[in-house]
């Protein structure tokens, strides 16, 4: 069996690799969200709902998107919050 010290050294290395991967992934994702500011975004939601809006901001837990000029099937809502749980995917151009 592996001595405890070697095992814990391996654990520490794995942890730091994992932390590095997590921070690389998160930073790119945050940059992606930032690049969406003031862009037209198409949301593809559950129940076949598709809407377009101008993106404002996301909370950091990715639970809500704050948007403007949301084109709903029954008209335009000037300011809105979209629940991320309602969303399957969204698209924008860069």
């Amino acid at each position: 069996s592996i001595p405890t010290s070697a095992a814990s050294e391996e654990d520490a290395e794995l942890l730091s690799e994992e932390q590095h991967a997590r921070s690389v992934l998160r930073e790119s994702f945050l940059r992606c969200l930032l690049s969406m500011t003031n862009k037209k975004v198409q949301f593809n939601m559950y129940e076949k709902v598709k809407v377009e809006a101008t993106f404002g901001a996301s909370d950091i837990d990715v639970l809500n998107f704050q948007v403007s000029d949301l084109h709903t099937p029954i008209g335009v809502q000037k300011e809105a919050l979209i629940r991320c749980r309602d969303v399957i995917s969204f698209t924008f151009d860069i």
């Binding site: 939601m45 559950y46 129940e47 704050q66 948007v67 809502q77 300011e79 629940r83 749980r85 309602d86």
Partner: peptide, 11 residues
């Protein structure tokens, strides 16, 4: 901006 949830009821 005081945005309101859309849709009002979660999908």
């Amino acid at each position: 901006k005081q945005p309101k949830y859309w849709p009002v009821i979660p999908l």
